[in-house]
Design a protein around this nucleic acid. Sequence first.
DNA 1: GACGGCCATCCTACCAGAAGGTAGGGTATG
DNA 2: CATACCCTACCTTCTGGTAGGATGGCCGTC
Lengths: 198, 198
Amino acid sequence: MSNLSTTSDDILACARSLIVAGGYNGFSYADISDVVGIRKASIHHHFPSKVDLVRTLVARYREEAEAGMASLELQVSDPLEQLRFYAGYWEACIADASAPFCVCALLASELPVLPEEVGLEVRAHFRSLSAWLTSMLERGARHGQLQLMSTPRAEAEAFMATVHGAMLSARAYGDPKIFGVVTGPLLERLRASPQIRP
Amino acid sequence: MSNLSTTSDDILACARSLIVAGGYNGFSYADISDVVGIRKASIHHHFPSKVDLVRTLVARYREEAEAGMASLELQVSDPLEQLRFYAGYWEACIADASAPFCVCALLASELPVLPEEVGLEVRAHFRSLSAWLTSMLERGARHGQLQLMSTPRAEAEAFMATVHGAMLSARAYGDPKIFGVVTGPLLERLRASPQIRP
DNA sequence: GACGGCCATCCTACCAGAAGGTAGGGTATG
DNA sequence: CATACCCTACCTTCTGGTAGGATGGCCGTC
């Protein structure tokens, strides 16, 4: 009860995994219909157009991500530990192939051909993720737990870029381990070494 | 003369820019037909199937990349300078929007839905780029020009991932400058600081 | 409790256009 | 004449999307 029709959730979940595999133009209503076990036309009842479907999908994805960041903030106080958790989350997703790519990272690569409404959501995710990472790094640097080599903002952008690139490499090599190979040293480098200066 | 039919080159060039914009499923023969000013059917004369087209496109891209690495090797001896040049090349491409993404990086993101023959070429590019970067970093470290924090291989993978991620961020933000913001410190970090050890 | 209306869900059937691709013919250039 | 190139015309399948009907649960009213 109370969960309004699990069908639309099924559709969203299915579409998400299809997008993660092949992007916006890499799937069709027919594909979803096959997996979910519902007729093509019935999908239109839940999501009148493909744009509607993907827009709400990305919007929900963003909500989840935002919620994840917030809860992480509550559970773990150490900034480095939070970054480790974030990287570890993706490492696990990639390893078990459950969701081996960030939906927004994948869609961002096709931004020029994306419907505008979807593009806006995707860009918003990048901004919010970047802002979170920036605040994390800023705090860690201020408290002396992290050592930054440039501004928190620049370091956050570099961190995000490296994580996204690591997803791509893991996919290209067909080897989940490469994600850890790339992100491991990334985190290690941020860890403040025992102070040497006076 | 001697350049066998510029038409097929036009088709390849057009397809390349279309792929860079939206990936394998983001363009059609009709799109090429519009731009090149040739009928759809005529494209099939040069490239019987879409797979043929994209496979040769990626193969040619790889040749160019390989040639670029080789000529860079001849022109510039300093490893750091070579990496700088490589990053600078992409920074320029992104800035003038002439080719704001690596064809193989974009296609790699859709690997699961790519025709196998295309996927093989894409993976091969990743391996060759990684190998080149590895040799570059290994040499730089051996000669004391670069400081690595992990193995040359791991550092090369991290470098490649960061560059690809930086392309993605530049696209997501719609801001070419972000590429330099990410790759600048990356190169800076590799530069060996004036030796302190005895 | 029975009744009729309302609405959500899902269906079959259909559509127009775009997809990749084929058949076969014209021209011209070696 | 053979071949390379490009054309018109056509085909099949897939695409996102629509129209309209069947089912069934839930509502207030009698």
